[in-house]
Write a protein that binds this DNA or RNA. Structure first.
Lengths: 379, 379
DNA sequence: CTGTTAGCGCATTCAA
DNA sequence: TTGAATGCGCTAACAG
């Protein structure tokens, strides 16, 4: 029922080997022969059997992109950009249309679950993926980190390229090379694009401090995420440098943790207000959380930024459209994702040392203003 | 270097076939034997070779989810929900952890390009995918529709389940069965979950009409999309029923088309204002576009809803947080996506006739109000 | 319940 | 430049 390479060969009056060669374009084939084969392929409506091909060649054309939350544009933007660099070879190439050695960029949603992350990695390994891109913050549980690192080492050792995008690099012990012969490529197999979360967060809080804010609440992400920790650290660095520590204790009671969603921002802000009614600013772990924070403040009858300033992180597309527009830290998600895609396909050389830092830019907009503008009216 | 099933068999003192059986769990295996095999698998750190397995079994465990724009939460939500029903069998099942016959849900971003849509379908066919889910509106170009339909028919004929989510069903000629022996399953291989875009849009515009609006601008999506057409038709049905036609001509000059993004909403709204300064309401093709519309209105110094009412479609998570909150039409994206996932895995039976309609619910919020509340102040 | 025997469809040696 | 053979790693009949 299903057309195979042999069928094509028969119809084109050539050997299966020749058909394989024209399809892959790796070996010289006479022009007339190629024509004949291509016509047969079209006539028969032949579609290459991926598994068979992958089995014989010991490698597939799959590139996996792991994301923590596919419904979050933060990941969607990076994944889309990466994918555009991977799947989008069409146009200029040699053979037009259906044949080609297209790479299949696929995005896998871990939902932030460590187990699913590992499961996907295994599944990708099982598929003999050509490359794997891990996006966004990593989970900091030691056991999990080790498991992921081991898995990635094994993947890399098996020849699949590993790219980290918006995630800290792996322990250097992995970069040196596996315990076996490893890959022969000159390229580093593991490359990392890190975001300057700490620096961005620091500059954001410095901005608030410069506006005279002192009672600043912080709505952080889930505790075990690197992104969460780095942003929080940047915030605290700025606070400490300004001599504004959270409270008497080392732990800042003006910090509340929660998931990276609007509900968390809403709830956390109410909680912060309860702890410190004199709050003049709220810094959110990301823009989505900031949205929830704004909603909570409005529901409490507080004006932004007159009563309370609000700031986010990421500069997602909607952030410029909030009312007032959100002060935030811009991460070049599209550019980073695209670069990760190129790294994954080997189209771009890995940065020196395998790690490149991506800058974060402070975007000052209407949601932050001077502290105390209307503060007197509140308790 | 790489561990194979045979290695595991050797270490466990059993035949390769037995190892295969415990890994797939399809045949009875003695408990002690299974233990031994599992231990060997762990000891050797064995990972199944997906391609080889797919080749031998003539089917893979890949489920493809096609989306038009992965950076758009509309698709992200559906894809995430679908994926959660497909990849998430962990927990209760038989064998724990790494082995299992997990399905790999993968999302493919077409970027709205017909070519990429076809390419991905071919690639999925090439991978012998277990199922394919197409989400969101289809492109209406006749040639493309035929090509997609043909491709899907071939996929279905090859045993891969096809599910449409938020997209109109295929021509019934495809549902009857292919031109060959086709599949022997009792299930329909092609199922469709359609959104009531037309009805939702009609009710939304009726709501505006009831508020006294007559000069209503419409910011539509790309012309060639089914979603665009259906929503626009619903809008016009309501307008026509109220005796409020766009203008003298049949074509409504108060309609502007553009992509499904904020920029389009912004530009189109300015254009509508130019065409009809007396506009009292703007209906956007979706919430993201509505965001841009709001920005344009504000930039023009118009208040929402006092001067101009604004409405969107989809009810994305951020819509409740805009200021004022956005009146829109809620689509149960999560539920629909989850159902599509179940349909794709065969965990849920196809609806009668292969098609089920998903209801759209009008959500009236603060962005719409009575017409003319402040209209006198404008020219 | 388990071992044996054959391929699945293709990429790649090696010759010619 | 092309054809003939071989095996990739696994599953699926069959027997036993």
């Amino acid at each position: 029922m299903t057309v195979t390479l042999a069928d094509v060969a028969a119809r084109a009056q050539v050997s299966p080997a020749t058909v394989s060669r024209v399809l892959n374009g790796n070996y010289p084939v006479a022009a007339t022969t190629r024509e004949r084969v291509l016509r047969a392929v079209d006539d028969l409506d032949y579609v290459l059997n991926g598994p068979a091909s992958a089995l014989a060649a010991a490698t597939s054309d799959l590139v996996g992109i792991l994301v923590n939350d596919i419904a979050d544009p933060f990941f969607g933007i990076m994944a889309g950009a990466a994918q555009s660099q991977i799947g989008g070879a069409e146009g200029a190439g040699s053979g037009a249309g259906r044949a080609g050695s297209e790479k299949l960029a696929i995005v896998c949603n871990t939902g932030g679950s460590p187990e699913r992350e590992l499961t996907y990695l295994t599944l990708l390994q099982r598929q003999r993926a050509a490359a794997v891109i891990l996006t966004g913050g990593a989970i900091e549980d030691p056991g999990h980190s080790a498991a992921v690192a081991a898995k990635l080492a094994k993947l890399a050792d098996g020849g699949t390229r590993v790219v980290l995008c918006g995630r800290p690099p792996l322990p250097s012990s992995l970069l040196g090379g596996g315990d076996g012969e490893g890959n022969g490529d000159g390229d580093a197999v593991v490359a990392a694009l890190t975001f300057d979360n700490r620096g961005g967060a620091r500059r954001l809080t410095e901005h608030l401090l410069a506006l005279g804010h002192r009672r600043i609440g912080y709505v952080a992400g889930p505790v075990e995420r690197t992104t969460t920790r780095h942003r929080l650290e940047g915030h605290r660095e700025a606070m400490a440098a300004a001599g504004v520590l959270g409270g008497g204790t080392g732990e800042d009671e003006l910090t509340v943790h929660g998931p990276y969603d609007r509900q968390s921002g809403y709830d956390a802000t109410l909680e912060l207000l309860r702890r410190e009614p004199g709050l003049t600013a709220v810094v959110a772990a990301n823009d989505t959380v900031a949205l929830g924070a704004c909603a909570a403040l409005r529901d409490r009858g507080l004006r932004i930024p007159d009563d309370v300033s609000v700031a986010g992180f990421d500069d997602l597309p909607f952030s410029v459209d909030t009312v007032p527009a959100l002060t935030t830290v811009r991460l070049p998600l599209h550019e980073a994702g695209a670069r990760a895609g190129r790294l994954a396909t080997g189209r771009e050389a890995a940065p020196p040392g395998g790690v490149a830092s991506v800058a974060a830019e402070l975007m000052v907009r209407g949601s932050t203003g001077r502290a105390g503008r209307a503060g007197a009216s509140r308790g």
